[in-house]
Amino acid sequence: MVREINSKFLKKVDGFNLYKSVSNLTDAKEFLLIKKPDLILLDVFLPKENGIDFLKWLRSEEIEVDVILITADKTIERVQEAFRYGALDYLIKPFSFERLKEALHQFKERHYKFKKSKVIEQDELDRLIINTNSSQDEESYTKGLNKYTYKSIWDEVEKSDYKYFTAEDLSEKLGIARVTVRRYLEYMDKDKKIEKLIEYGKVGRPQYKYRKN
Protein backbone atom coordinates (compact mmCIF):
# COMPACT_ATOMS: atom_id res chain seq x y z
CA MET A 1 0.00 0.00 0.00
CA VAL A 2 2.81 2.41 0.91
CA ARG A 3 4.61 1.53 -2.33
CA GLU A 4 1.48 2.34 -4.29
CA ILE A 5 1.10 5.71 -2.54
CA ASN A 6 4.72 6.65 -3.24
CA SER A 7 4.32 5.57 -6.86
CA LYS A 8 1.34 7.91 -7.22
CA PHE A 9 3.32 10.71 -5.56
CA LEU A 10 6.14 10.23 -8.04
CA LYS A 11 3.82 10.49 -11.03
CA LYS A 12 2.79 13.97 -9.86
CA VAL A 13 6.35 15.32 -10.14
CA ASP A 14 7.39 16.58 -13.57
CA GLY A 15 10.50 15.06 -15.09
CA PHE A 16 10.30 11.63 -13.43
CA ASN A 17 9.18 8.25 -14.76
CA LEU A 18 8.70 5.16 -12.62
CA TYR A 19 10.62 2.27 -14.19
CA LYS A 20 9.68 -0.39 -11.68
CA SER A 21 8.25 -0.89 -8.19
CA VAL A 22 9.46 -3.99 -6.34
CA SER A 23 9.06 -5.41 -2.83
CA ASN A 24 12.24 -7.46 -2.45
CA LEU A 25 15.95 -7.17 -3.11
CA THR A 26 16.16 -10.10 -5.52
CA ASP A 27 13.74 -8.48 -7.95
CA ALA A 28 15.52 -5.16 -7.52
CA LYS A 29 18.92 -6.64 -8.38
CA GLU A 30 17.54 -8.51 -11.39
CA PHE A 31 15.87 -5.39 -12.69
CA LEU A 32 19.07 -3.37 -12.38
CA LEU A 33 20.72 -5.76 -14.82
CA ILE A 34 18.11 -4.75 -17.41
CA LYS A 35 17.46 -1.08 -16.70
CA LYS A 36 19.79 1.61 -15.40
CA PRO A 37 17.68 4.13 -13.46
CA ASP A 38 19.10 7.47 -12.36
CA LEU A 39 17.49 7.27 -8.93
CA ILE A 40 16.18 4.65 -6.51
CA LEU A 41 13.63 5.37 -3.78
CA LEU A 42 14.50 2.80 -1.13
CA ASP A 43 12.78 1.61 2.03
CA VAL A 44 14.70 0.05 4.92
CA PHE A 45 11.98 -2.31 6.12
CA LEU A 46 11.39 -5.00 3.49
CA PRO A 47 9.88 -8.47 4.03
CA LYS A 48 12.68 -10.43 5.79
CA GLU A 49 15.23 -8.06 4.21
CA ASN A 50 16.94 -4.75 4.93
CA GLY A 51 17.13 -1.97 2.39
CA ILE A 52 20.50 -0.84 3.74
CA ASP A 53 21.94 -4.17 2.59
CA PHE A 54 20.80 -3.26 -0.91
CA LEU A 55 22.46 0.15 -0.63
CA LYS A 56 25.70 -1.54 0.43
CA TRP A 57 25.42 -3.96 -2.50
CA LEU A 58 25.00 -1.08 -4.95
CA ARG A 59 28.20 0.53 -3.69
CA SER A 60 30.19 -2.72 -3.59
CA GLU A 61 29.16 -3.44 -7.20
CA GLU A 62 29.99 0.16 -8.16
CA ILE A 63 26.58 0.64 -9.75
CA GLU A 64 26.20 4.29 -10.64
CA VAL A 65 22.78 5.20 -9.28
CA ASP A 66 21.60 7.70 -6.66
CA VAL A 67 19.44 6.66 -3.72
CA ILE A 68 16.92 8.45 -1.53
CA LEU A 69 15.79 6.56 1.58
CA ILE A 70 12.05 6.63 2.32
CA THR A 71 11.45 4.76 5.55
CA ALA A 72 9.90 4.65 9.02
CA ASP A 73 13.30 3.81 10.55
CA LYS A 74 14.27 6.93 12.49
CA THR A 75 17.19 5.52 14.49
CA ILE A 76 20.35 7.63 14.38
CA GLU A 77 22.40 4.51 13.63
CA ARG A 78 20.38 3.81 10.49
CA VAL A 79 20.43 7.43 9.31
CA GLN A 80 24.21 7.63 9.71
CA GLU A 81 24.67 4.32 7.93
CA ALA A 82 22.57 5.50 5.00
CA PHE A 83 24.60 8.66 4.54
CA ARG A 84 27.91 6.82 4.95
CA TYR A 85 26.92 4.62 2.03
CA GLY A 86 26.04 7.57 -0.14
CA ALA A 87 22.30 8.16 0.25
CA LEU A 88 21.30 11.58 -1.11
CA ASP A 89 18.44 12.17 1.28
CA TYR A 90 16.51 10.45 4.08
CA LEU A 91 12.74 10.89 4.35
CA ILE A 92 11.12 9.62 7.54
CA LYS A 93 7.52 8.41 7.26
CA PRO A 94 5.04 9.96 7.43
CA PHE A 95 6.29 12.79 5.26
CA SER A 96 4.45 15.32 3.12
CA PHE A 97 4.23 15.19 -0.66
CA GLU A 98 5.91 18.60 -0.68
CA ARG A 99 8.96 17.21 1.13
CA LEU A 100 9.28 14.36 -1.37
CA LYS A 101 8.89 16.76 -4.27
CA GLU A 102 11.64 18.99 -2.89
CA ALA A 103 13.98 16.01 -2.52
CA LEU A 104 13.29 15.03 -6.13
CA HIS A 105 13.77 18.57 -7.41
CA GLN A 106 17.09 18.79 -5.58
CA PHE A 107 18.21 15.54 -7.17
CA LYS A 108 17.05 16.58 -10.64
CA GLU A 109 18.82 19.94 -10.51
CA ARG A 110 22.09 18.37 -9.38
CA HIS A 111 21.79 15.48 -11.85
CA TYR A 112 21.44 17.75 -14.88
CA LYS A 113 24.07 20.18 -13.66
CA PHE A 114 26.63 17.38 -13.28
CA LYS A 115 25.61 15.87 -16.61
CA LYS A 116 26.30 19.01 -18.63
CA SER A 117 29.37 20.30 -16.74
CA LYS A 118 32.93 19.04 -16.43
CA VAL A 119 33.98 21.39 -13.61
CA ILE A 120 32.09 23.29 -10.93
CA GLU A 121 32.83 26.20 -8.61
CA GLN A 122 32.46 25.95 -4.84
CA ASP A 123 29.49 28.32 -4.51
CA GLU A 124 27.55 26.42 -7.17
CA LEU A 125 28.39 23.10 -5.55
CA ASP A 126 27.25 24.41 -2.16
CA ARG A 127 23.93 25.39 -3.69
CA LEU A 128 23.43 21.95 -5.20
CA ILE A 129 24.32 19.87 -2.17
CA ILE A 130 21.14 18.48 -0.66
CA ASN A 131 20.02 19.97 2.66
CA THR A 132 22.55 22.81 2.41
CA ASN A 133 21.61 26.47 2.36
CA SER A 134 24.61 28.69 2.94
CA SER A 135 22.66 31.94 3.20
CA GLN A 136 19.98 30.79 5.60
CA ASP A 137 20.03 28.98 8.91
CA GLU A 138 17.07 26.81 9.86
CA GLU A 139 16.57 28.68 13.12
CA SER A 140 16.10 31.94 11.22
CA TYR A 141 12.86 30.78 9.64
CA THR A 142 9.63 31.93 11.18
CA LYS A 143 7.20 29.33 12.42
CA GLY A 144 5.51 27.45 9.60
CA LEU A 145 8.21 28.01 6.97
CA ASN A 146 10.17 25.09 5.59
CA LYS A 147 13.82 25.46 4.55
CA TYR A 148 13.42 23.07 1.59
CA THR A 149 10.48 25.02 0.20
CA TYR A 150 12.36 28.26 0.78
CA LYS A 151 15.36 26.97 -1.16
CA SER A 152 13.21 25.71 -4.07
CA ILE A 153 11.53 29.10 -4.41
CA TRP A 154 14.71 31.12 -3.97
CA ASP A 155 16.61 29.02 -6.52
CA GLU A 156 13.86 29.72 -9.04
CA VAL A 157 13.96 33.45 -8.23
CA GLU A 158 17.74 33.54 -8.70
CA LYS A 159 17.71 31.92 -12.12
CA SER A 160 14.57 33.68 -13.35
CA ASP A 161 14.94 35.80 -16.50
CA TYR A 162 11.93 37.92 -15.58
CA LYS A 163 12.50 41.56 -14.69
CA TYR A 164 9.41 41.20 -12.53
CA PHE A 165 7.65 38.04 -11.44
CA THR A 166 4.53 37.11 -9.49
CA ALA A 167 3.61 34.37 -7.06
CA GLU A 168 1.56 32.86 -9.89
CA ASP A 169 4.65 32.66 -12.14
CA LEU A 170 6.61 30.71 -9.54
CA SER A 171 3.64 28.58 -8.54
CA GLU A 172 3.20 27.39 -12.11
CA LYS A 173 6.90 26.59 -12.55
CA LEU A 174 7.43 24.84 -9.20
CA GLY A 175 4.08 23.15 -8.72
CA ILE A 176 3.71 24.78 -5.29
CA ALA A 177 0.43 26.39 -4.24
CA ARG A 178 0.24 30.11 -5.02
CA VAL A 179 -0.68 31.06 -1.44
CA THR A 180 2.36 29.11 -0.20
CA VAL A 181 4.69 30.83 -2.67
CA ARG A 182 3.33 34.22 -1.66
CA ARG A 183 4.07 33.55 2.02
CA TYR A 184 7.70 32.83 1.22
CA LEU A 185 7.97 35.84 -1.06
CA GLU A 186 6.65 38.04 1.73
CA TYR A 187 9.33 36.65 4.00
CA MET A 188 12.03 37.28 1.39
CA ASP A 189 10.71 40.82 1.01
CA LYS A 190 11.08 41.41 4.76
CA ASP A 191 14.58 39.95 4.53
CA LYS A 192 15.41 42.48 1.77
CA LYS A 193 16.26 39.75 -0.75
CA ILE A 194 13.48 40.85 -3.06
CA GLU A 195 11.37 43.96 -3.48
CA LYS A 196 7.58 43.97 -3.68
CA LEU A 197 5.74 46.30 -6.02
CA ILE A 198 2.01 46.89 -6.00
CA GLU A 199 0.26 47.43 -9.34
CA TYR A 200 -3.23 48.87 -9.18
CA GLY A 201 -5.61 48.07 -11.98
CA LYS A 202 -8.92 49.65 -12.91
CA VAL A 203 -10.92 46.85 -11.32
CA GLY A 204 -10.31 44.07 -8.86
CA ARG A 205 -7.58 43.61 -6.30
CA PRO A 206 -4.09 45.10 -6.71
CA GLN A 207 -1.49 42.78 -8.22
CA TYR A 208 1.74 42.12 -6.35
CA LYS A 209 4.91 41.89 -8.40
CA TYR A 210 8.43 41.16 -7.18
CA ARG A 211 11.98 41.65 -8.33
CA LYS A 212 15.38 40.66 -6.98
CA ASN A 213 17.30 43.24 -4.99
Rank of each mutant, 00 (worst) to 15 (best):
R99I: 04
R99F: 00
R99T: 06
L100G: 04
L100Y: 04
K101C: 03
K101R: 11
K101M: 11
K101D: 03
K101T: 05
E102T: 08
E102N: 10
A103P: 06
A103C: 01
A103F: 02
L104T: 00
H105A: 05
H105M: 13
Q106A: 09
E109K: 12
R110Y: 01
H111D: 04
Y112L: 15
Y112R: 08
Y112D: 09
K113M: 01
K113P: 00
K113Q: 04
K113D: 08
F114N: 07
F114H: 02
F114D: 06
K115R: 10
K115F: 05
K115E: 05
K115V: 04
K116E: 15
K116Y: 12
S117I: 03
V119A: 11
V119L: 13
I120V: 15
I120A: 05
E121P: 08
E121H: 12
E121T: 14
Q122F: 14
Q122I: 15
Q122E: 15
Q122M: 15
D123K: 11
D123A: 14
E124T: 13
E124L: 13
E124W: 07
E124I: 14
E124Q: 14
E124K: 14
L125Q: 08
L125V: 11
L125S: 13
D126F: 09
D126T: 08
D126E: 11
D126Y: 08
D126M: 10
R127T: 05
R127K: 09
R127P: 02
L128I: 06
L128R: 09
I129P: 10
I129E: 14
